[in-house]
C-alpha cells in the first residue's frame, strides 16, 4: 500500500493541470456549441468535474484534506443545481413545448 501510494506521486502535477484545462475547455465549447438545454446542463457538469479533479490533484499532492472536503461541497452544490435546472427544463418544455435555449432569449432584456 505504501509503495503504491508513493508511486502515485510520480505522476507530475502538470499532467493533471493540462487534463483539467482540456476538460474545462471542452465543457465551455459545449455550452457555446449546443442549443439543447439538457446538453448544456451536461456540459456544465463536465466543467464542474474538471475543477473537482484539479482540486483533488492539488489536495493529494500537498497532503492537505481541505481540498477534498471542498470537492465534496462542490458535489453538494452541483446536485442542488441539477435538481433546479432540470425542473426549469421541465417547466420550459411544458410552457413552450421545446427545449431550445434560443427560445429563452427574452431573458436578455
Amino acid at each position: 500500500m505504501k509503495e503504491l501510494s508513493s508511486a502515485i506521486q510520480l505522476i507530475p502535477l502538470e499532467n493533471y493541470i493540462f487534463l483539467s484545462v482540456a476538460l474545462f475547455s471542452i465543457g465551455m465549447m459545449g455550452v457555446l456549441f449546443r442549443r439543447n438545454t439538457i446538453a448544456i446542463l451536461m456540459c456544465l457538469e463536465l466543467m464542474f468535474n474538471s475543477v473537482n479533479l484539479l482540486l483533488t490533484a492539488f489536495s493529494a499532492y500537498h497532503s492537505d484534506p481541505s481540498g477534498q472536503v471542498f470537492v465534496f461541497f462542490i458535489m453538494i452544490v452541483a446536485a442542488a443545481e441539477v435538481a433546479v435546472g432540470l425542473s426549469i427544463v421541465v417547466m420550459m418544455k411544458r410552457n413552450v413545448d421545446s427545449i431550445d435555449i434560443n427560445l429563452l432569449n427574452r431573458l436578455k432584456w
Partner: peptide, 27 residues
C-alpha cells in the same frame, strides 16, 4: 473560442513557478 481558451490557459499555466508539496506525504 474553446480552442483559444484552452491555449490561453495552457500558456498561462506553463509560465507558473514550480509547485512544491506543502506537507510531507501522507497516504
Amino acid at each position: 473560442t474553446g480552442g483559444i481558451f484552452f491555449l490561453v490557459l495552457l500558456a498561462a499555466t506553463r509560465q507558473t513557478f514550480e509547485i512544491k508539496a506543502k506537507y510531507p506525504f501522507n497516504s
